[in-house]
């Protein structure tokens, strides 16, 4: 028991030299109220949370002026601005520059999607934007397809984390191609964050068991029937999956293998 606690406590996720004690990165999209969102973020134990950049509005659903930013600051949650809604490298660059200026961070979750229907990353625009952002001094967290070749390319372009999708954004389908995720992990030398597609706690645990360094999710919590319970479920799922990954699972076998010895069996 003591060992488990020690392992969990000393197992920080380090990205761009910053140690995060939680391997659960939260998104904020989809929450009906800011206060509910705050409670869920606290319950999740997250230390890093994404936001989108939009026109300033006092509407609470849109962030209530700068209330969302304040909420994160007050709870010591590091902010990770995203470039959601960008379809071209040019738009993503502009959004990242606005975020750096507004939120005073050079971290950016780079999202360049192909179209509104699939919301899948556009590999060419993503690579182009990555190169330019890295040149401008941004620390890029690249949201990418579950493509081991592209993931490695992005790493070579200088991202601080690669974030392959489990399934398309908002689908809750879980991890559609665990083999690719495993391959991405096995070749990466930057942290791998499973991003998008998570539906429930077991999906997050699986991501960690596959060797991912962290999990990023939003709607699985914010649109759950009880976001508070789900936030806590994910907190434990990520810890459990991480421990299992480090503990080393037994190999799968086609046939049974007794765990009780046959030797010494009484004559009955």
């Amino acid at each position: 028991m003591t060992e488990t606690k020690t392992l969990t406590r000393n197992d920080a996720l380090v990205i761009d030299g910053v140690a995060l004690n939680s391997r659960l990165i939260m998104g904020t999209g989809g929450a009906p109220s800011l206060s509910g969102l705050g409670a869920a973020l606290i319950a999740s134990g997250t230390e890093l949370t994404t936001v989108a950049m939009r026109r300033y509005s006092v509407d609470e659903a849109a962030g209530g002026g700068t209330n969302l930013f304040k909420l994160l600051l007050e709870n010591n949650i590091r902010v990770l601005p995203n470039t959601a809604g960008c379809f071209t490298a040019r738009e993503a660059l502009m959004t990242a520059e606005l975020a750096r200026e507004a939120l005073e961070t050079d971290w950016v979750k780079l999202e360049v999607v192909a179209d509104e229907h699939t919301l899948l990353p556009d590999a060419l625009e993503l690579a182009e934007a990555t190169e330019q952002l890295v040149n401008r001094g941004f620390k890029v967290f690249a949201y990418t397809n579950d493509d081991p070749v592209l993931a490695l390319r992005l790493e070579q372009l200088g991202v601080v984390a690669v974030m392959p999708l489990g399934a398309p954004i908002g689908t809750g389908l879980g991890i559609l191609n665990p083999h690719n995720i495993e391959l991405i992990v096995s070749r990466a030398s930057v942290p791998v964050v499973l991003d998008a597609g998570i539906g429930t706690a077991s999906d997050a645990a699986l991501a960690m068991e596959l060797g991912c360094d962290a999990v990023l999710l939003a709607t699985a919590v914010t649109r759950a029937q009880n976001p508070l319970l789900m936030a806590e479920a994910f907190k434990h799922a990520v810890i459990g999956g991480r421990l299992a990954s480090q503990g080393g699972r037994i190999p799968k076998r086609a046939h049974a293998l007794a765990s009780s010895a046959m030797a010494g069996r009484p004559d009955l």
Binding site: G27, T28, G29, G30, A31, L37, T50, V51, A52, M53, R54, R55, Y56, S57, A61, A62, G63, G65, T66, L68, F69, L72, V79, P81, N82, A84, M94, E97, L98, A99, E101, A102, L103, K109, E111, A218
Partner: peptide
């Protein structure tokens, strides 16, 4: 074009300028 905050006070708006003032909102 981004206007750095240090330049806000020195930047007068001109006829037909398009300005965007953005903040963090829920997302992603």
């Amino acid at each position: 074009e981004i206007v750095p905050r240090s330049q806000w006070a020195a930047t007068a708006v001109e006829h037909q300028d398009a300005l965007e003032i953005v903040a963090a909102v829920q997302g992603g």
